[in-house]
Design a protein around this nucleic acid. Structure first.
Lengths: 338, 338
DNA sequence: AGCTCGGATGAAAACGTTTACGTTCGGCTC
DNA sequence: GAGCCGAACGTAAACGTTTTCATCCGAGCT
């Protein structure tokens, strides 16, 4: 169907080898034949067949990204960071998302074999055993936000613990004491780290107070439900820290509906700093995680691996710093309270 | 480096042909040898080489998506729709974005050759001549939001004109008369359609009023700048229709800063219905364009083309309906005004 | 017993490239 | 003018699969 290198060779009256030389480096051919070949190739609209080419060069100029989802600001931002970095290296992006089950994730990984030069993996199913079993051997891989018992692969992740600690410290410093926490999806490792830091910081910095934990699933609606529970509690919490921004926003809606003021009656904080966070009113205090930077850093890490510059050092595990963004939803100037 | 089919064949003491048969359909081999081959393949962690396989099968199980950008709600949503549809067909997604120039877009297209079964194209550079010149011949292609003089390729696009008309009609019906419009990027075709409909509707439904057009570039900040200009005008417009939601939101900030009320002093409307639109206050009147559905529809269209069911009918050009979402930013109950 | 038929298997071609290796040929050095 | 060297070019192998075709073998039939 398509026009191949042979067609060009025949038309230009040279061998396929010369066509290849003329179109690539250009060394080893006369300026004249190169000219002629290029002209013919353009006229015939010859475009090299990617699969055939990468079969022999062992290079695909593509990197694969395995993500749990594509929905929402977080992944949008992550992909953007990866894509931006990828195109400075002249790479394409093969994305695969929404692996609900481990089997599906495995299939996606297998499908990458021979089509990518390296893999960026963010998957809830990606424990060490799973990876060892399913990763194509010898394929450079970098993990993102993945819990790993051993340091088999380089990994990047958000400093969930540090971010959550900053939030709780900020709330305590602002005088809030009964601070609730809204969880995310059950098996999410990021959430677990945030919750742990919430509990630890609370215990350390406000010894008398107890942890108040409500369920959630990262969606706005679950934040709304948690907010409904929250306002009905006795005694009522005076601050709430949601495991992500969307739930915080849902929670704010519930608080407003109950006729309470933010932050005078209840302060609200989130996690992620999605663009929307600064537009809701009051603007949402949250943790900025520089997601695009994480994507970029992960790709750079992958590139050093692909280009074979393993300097013998064991694979690094980098934590991306998380910044506290203090906004109106928690900046009530009130002094201590019981 | 990787383990190939030959390794499996040697280890299982059969020919590569039998390995291939055992691992694929399974027909043409004894149950016993199939068992043995599968065991060996699993033990060796054999994963077929995608490029080699698709070189001969002429199938990649991948579709390419050429997008101008990945940033923001619009593309996030679009990719999600495409991805969702793709995975029901068992397809991977090869994305390529941010082609600033035509040359870059052409390179991206060429890189797809031999790596995808079909192409989804959304590009400002994609006029008919460009496509004819750069699209790999014989590669199924569907266009999205692309202006085309002839009906060479099937295409899907948002009903920009219809959506904009609904907004302007709504504003006029609500009693607004001095309605301004904030433009998007200069060469954007969607924007041009929206602006045209704005002008037409205004002329038809509110004959006395004149068009007031401010520059913008789709970013929130340009909306803010337009808002600053807007509030300083004499006479001041009493409504503003931004070519997208982010600019509308920026504009709202400028209006609020000027001490004016929305919608009492100035009504605001946007386009796209990004998730944020319902969370700003007042909630933003806008046009919902079902972006994910557009992506899904485009992919389905592409699939029928790939599977060779061209039923002789000329390629369809489908318009996705746009729904007016009336919210608080424009629902001031005021009767006519000069 | 001889024949045919069909299923399991292996050898080899094919996919479209790149590249190692020969071959040719022109020009240079002596 | 003979010999040599290097550049240009063609031939063919290689990449890892799938698939066609031929071969082999055992079972069933006459």
């Amino acid at each position: 169907m398509g026009v191949t290198i042979k067609d060009v060779a025949r038309e230009a009256k040279v061998s396929v080898a010369s066509v290849s030389r003329a179109l690539n480096g250009g060394s080893g051919v006369t300026a004249e034949t190169m000219e002629r070949v290029r002209e013919v190739a353009a006229r015939l609209r010859y475009i090299p067949h990617g699969a055939a080419r990468s079969l022999i060069t062992r290079r695909t100029h593509t990197i694969g990204a395995l993500l749990p989802d594509l929905y929402g600001e977080f992944f949008s931002e992550l992909i953007r960071g990866i894509d931006l970095a990828a195109r400075t290296h002249g790479l394409q992006l093969l994305v695969s998302s929404s692996h609900d089950g481990a089997a599906e994730a495995a299939t996606a990984m297998h499908a990458m074999q021979g089509r990518v030069d390296g893999l960026l993996v963010m998957s809830p199913h990606a424990d060490a055993a799973f990876l060892r079993q399913n990763l194509p051997v010898g394929l450079p891989t970098v993990l993102m936000n993945t819990v790993l018992d051993r340091d088999d692969y380089p990994a990047l992740s958000v400093d969930n613990g540090g971010g959550a600690r900053l939030v709780v410290e900020h709330l305590i410093d602002a005088g809030y004491r009964r601070i609730a926490f809204i969880q995310g999806p059950a098996k999410n490792h990021d959430v677990a780290e945030r919750e742990q830091a919430y509990r630890d910081t609370l215990a350390k910095r406000a010894p008398g107070s107890e942890a108040i934990v409500l369920p959630g699933d990262f969606n706005e609606e679950s934040g709304y439900r948690a907010g409904r529970q929250l306002v009905a509690m006795h005694p009522r919490p005076d601050a709430v820290f949601a495991a992500n921004d969307m739930m915080a926003i849902g929670c704010m809606a519930a608080i407003r509906e109950a006729g309470l003021r933010i932050p005078e009656d209840i302060a609200v904080a989130g996690f992620d700093d999605v663009p929307m966070a600064r537009y809701v009113s009051p603007a949402l205090t949250t943790v900025g995680v520089r997601i695009a930077e994480l994507g970029k850093a992960a790709l750079e890490q992958l590139m050093t691996q692909i280009e074979g510059r393993h300097d013998g050092t064991p694979p690094a595990h980098i934590r991306m710093p998380a910044d506290l963004m203090i906004r109106a939803s928690s900046t009530n100037e009130r002094s201590r309270k019981t």
